[in-house]
Nucleic acid binder design. Structure first.
Lengths: 214, 214
DNA sequence: CTCGGCTGAATGAATGATCATTCATTCATG
DNA sequence: CATGAATGAATGATCATTCATTCAGCCGAG
């Protein structure tokens, strides 16, 4: 038993087949969005993913772990999508109304174009199912955004607000619209997005930047 | 069997003992807030309420019905509390910054002073457990507020926004703060409330009213 | 005032259903 | 043939819900 025998003790570091893992997560997402976190049995996830029940446990140690993994993956998808949308608003963080639009619209559009993922996120966030580790992972993901935020505040390109107040004012309305949409209480039109964004600008931008452009 | 025999076919119209019914609902609220909608078994609700498991079913036909009843009751509590807080802002609907403060602060304070009830509401709203009937009941409860809103818009005391956008801008930030608080990510101080409210004013009040008072 | 029986709220052990999870077995692949 | 991913029936645990039984309080008769 030399040191060399310790090489790659586990052949596949994450899962066996990335496709299958993905199919499982996609099935879980759909079912949880449709039925709710409570009423989505693992057996149904397996059936929907086209695998046997036991297979789920080759990829995830438990249902809770699967949901937590899915949560982080959905967050990553959202971040990636927002980063792509923000291609225009470049580098240094030229906030102002246009920069905020790039950020806000990216977040809003993702939530409205991915209703299942959006519903899943909102359910997880208010359900005591996320572990401390997952919440820690989320915090780490947001570190860069936090840095940009502080920079923008320091440069006077955002009103001087605590980060959490900023997030509540910027993201809170989006999540609220998403929830009303999920409840079938409204449809999200471009007009709704525009007028909500206009309100958000007034709440977090310095006055001189509010009216910069439609 | 005359018509007279039909008198009072059921002695107690709602439940048997209002106290016991209340104890059950209070227990359900605490447990669901602490453990989450999924992990709150009826047996635990019964134990916590100091009654036997079977007793729950003398007061509610099912767990789902119990949760829906609790949801409507919590909404009524919140409305009552907000109405009491708004004693100052009287009659006609003198909105402006002061009137909005009466409304917004009432809503916000209730959510921060009743963390269990607040958490319960947020869980229900994103979990597909509310029936159409319950949602209809909620809509009926909000009818008066809707009328006041339309009046205020017509009188130019609120910016001309669709109702849902208004609600997203006013309530969305509160719910987001409540959720971050529930996740242990922040503490709600008076400063946080003040600066959030300031942002909300900018987003929904006409400019002339934004700076009326702190 | 007292006693015996009656009512129906309350009980909690039992039931049946549903799940998450396991593991002996299968089978495709190298 | 050997490996190990995949299977899916079986397991054990947990629940929501039921129902036969209990018993506290009430009422009419004596």
């Amino acid at each position: 038993m030399t040191d060399a025998t310790i090489d790659r003790p586990v052949p596949a570091p994450i899962g066996f087949s990335a496709d299958k893992r993905q199919a499982i997560l996609a099935a879980a997402l759909r079912l949880i969005a449709r039925l709710g976190l409570h009423a989505a049995p693992m057996s149904a996830v397996a059936r929907y993913a086209g695998v046997a029940a036991g297979t789920l446990y080759l990829y995830f140690p438990s249902k809770e772990a699967m949901i937590n993994a899915l949560y982080l993956q959905v967050l990553e998808d959202r971040d990636r999508s927002m980063a792509a949308d923000a291609e225009g608003a470049r580098k240094d963080g030229a906030i102002g109304r246009a920069g905020l639009w790039a950020f806000w619209n990216g977040l809003a559009r993702w939530h409205f174009e991915h209703p299942e993922a959006s519903s899943f996120l909102l359910q997880c966030q208010s359900s005591a199912i996320l572990t401390d580790e997952t919440r820690e992972g989320e915090r780490r993901m947001n570190a860069e955004g936090l840095r940009n935020f502080e920079q923008a505040v320091a440069a006077g390109r955002l009103r001087d607000l605590p980060l959490q107040v900023f997030w509540a004012l910027v993201a809170g309305p989006i999540f609220q619209l998403a929830q009303m949409r999920d409840a079938g209480e409204m449809e999200i039109t471009d007009d709704v997005l525009r007028s909500t964004f206009d309100g958000v600008c007034r709440s977090v931008l310095p006055e001189r930047d509010v009216a910069t452009s439609p």
